[in-house]
Design a protein around this nucleic acid. Sequence first.
DNA 1: TTGTACGCGTTATCAT
DNA 2: ATGATAACGCGTACAA
Lengths: 374, 374
Amino acid sequence: MAGRRPTVYDVARQAGVSIATVSFAFRRPAEVRAETREAVLRAAQEIGYVPSASARGLAQRRTGALGLHSFEYLLDRPQGLTEGAVPLQVADLDLDQDVVSWDQLGPGAVSGPAAFPLYVDEVQRGFELEARRHGRPVLVGRSAESGGDVTETAGRVDGLAIFPGRAAERLVREVRLHMPVVVFGSPPDDDPHHHVLADNRGGARELVRHLVTVHGLSDLAFVGSQAPWDLRERFFGMRGELEALGLPAPDEVCDDTDLVDGATFDGVRALVTSGRLPHALVCGSDQVALAVLELLAREGVRVPEDIAVTGFDGILAGRLGAVPLTTVAQPMEAMGRVAVHLLMGAGDEGGRVVRLGTRLQVRRSCGCSRPPTS
Amino acid sequence: MAGRRPTVYDVARQAGVSIATVSFAFRRPAEVRAETREAVLRAAQEIGYVPSASARGLAQRRTGALGLHSFEYLLDRPQGLTEGAVPLQVADLDLDQDVVSWDQLGPGAVSGPAAFPLYVDEVQRGFELEARRHGRPVLVGRSAESGGDVTETAGRVDGLAIFPGRAAERLVREVRLHMPVVVFGSPPDDDPHHHVLADNRGGARELVRHLVTVHGLSDLAFVGSQAPWDLRERFFGMRGELEALGLPAPDEVCDDTDLVDGATFDGVRALVTSGRLPHALVCGSDQVALAVLELLAREGVRVPEDIAVTGFDGILAGRLGAVPLTTVAQPMEAMGRVAVHLLMGAGDEGGRVVRLGTRLQVRRSCGCSRPPTS
DNA sequence: TTGTACGCGTTATCAT
DNA sequence: ATGATAACGCGTACAA
């Protein structure tokens, strides 16, 4: 199994031909005599020859793969955002036993439904499916927030899609890659990249309209950091719709918690303690909303009876809790597919901006008892 | 953005040094004078230099990446197994609009919860997380059942994990790759590969014990193709436990439907039509069980009142249906992590076999009303 | 149809 | 500390 990997030279020698013939036998089978081709393929099979993508990529100046790189900050949390279970440490296991029992694995044996699949994962699925349709392997790279190793991923692919994460927007703008690049959910600047994003403002407006006109709620508060561009957009959308409906709109978010380690939600806590709850907490993302739901449950605040809570994204976890989450769904799989489509599009130089529509997903947390759509 | 990718030569010229110095500046920063290093890095940044993984891989004889290849047969089904919604066709979209509305995207806008994440996806997540921990990018390759392009993936990585899928077991046994290989859920043959699998027999036995001793069910029928090795193991486990409990065990499965296009479940249908239902349908996998649940619902058979139904795997979709599925959970994330661990293990030549324990997941479909565990 | 020879961009081994 | 140069394995133009 180990040992040096066989090369065309080995195959050529084995088959009694030249390396060019070996290459031809693989790349243009039609242009080589049948029996030579057979001999070559058999020789290759026998010695376990696998063409080196490195050498091929070098010769052709293209790797053939597409890349997806995400800057993540909270990964590797088996049970979800707020519960801090420790991920499985494989090195600590004794793998030589007959059976490694479930109990030895601990909570990291399976990915908790609150931790997977998140937004990134669902977009990634679309990316993988569309790449497969084009016969392209996908290289998945992930790095900690603002880590510089995008280049590690970029060096391996012909085109790259990037999740800028929470604070890496600037980094992305400065990156100057000589290949097509798609950036998800970041501001459509005058950079040379393609942008794929959801209609954040439109989605937020539709959500607010629902809360106001269907449920008669008027005092809405926004929860979520304003650092990421897309969350800012959602806040603006909320304000815009409130104003359009002739209601007062808050100037500031009521809580700018970012979902880093030990998210405290001081703003929300303050509201709860003061006893002066708004009618609804409009959260910047599902992950924020789920954490807020957990907090409220601990504090004895009932949702939706005492207060409505909404999210944004449409991740699966929002359906699973005790209180199913009303949210604005993004077309996540579609976003991944569109990214691949753009990366494969040869001619189009410039940075195209593709904005995809959202869909209001009404569930229980806004006060709807029998949701029209699941 | 386009144009030739800059190389070390370009950087060298720009910085007024030799290519060796450029290489050193990146790889052994300590061994180069501070100001030259600065100059080099600045030059690289300016012209957008990204090291070519192909060239590096060629020179070092290793790519640095790990691969995960799956042979799949049913992919790209946005809404799940039995409903045949068409996946999104990106090419048909007009991406130049202001906003591409949700309705134009159709059902393929998001991955249906019955289609994602499936078994493979959850294992893949563990694989990605563990690979990230080791600083390794992951190459995801997928091919249609029995497609030969494993080599496409293998040529790009230093180690490869393979899902042999439903019928590609033989293919995997014949593959002779000169790198560490992990095979998921296939028989631990005398091949040179590592094997990572769940305790299929043990899990099935625990499940059957529950059905018999807790619910008093004695007439159990197995549903699922016996082509895949792991499903055979589960059937054997069921028979073994029945015999151990002094009950008659069926010689054959009652339905050997494989989940290919238009899975018909003739065996199950026959049972329903005949009106002589067994006490329980023990399904070979969650996906089979979910399809069976759907079929029974259409036929007006109530679960668990008229018949119990169980699955195997523990995928998320099993929790989401109208009748939450009792199943045997595999430690999917852990399996992916262990695979990476084995691939990174340098010395160990031979094929190790790691068998991970399962856990009975009791929900409603077996007749339990208040499940002890969720 | 098949063989020879060069280039792809990087690393690493020498000299200097 | 830095520069010249030889691999690395494959594709391909060109020669035979």
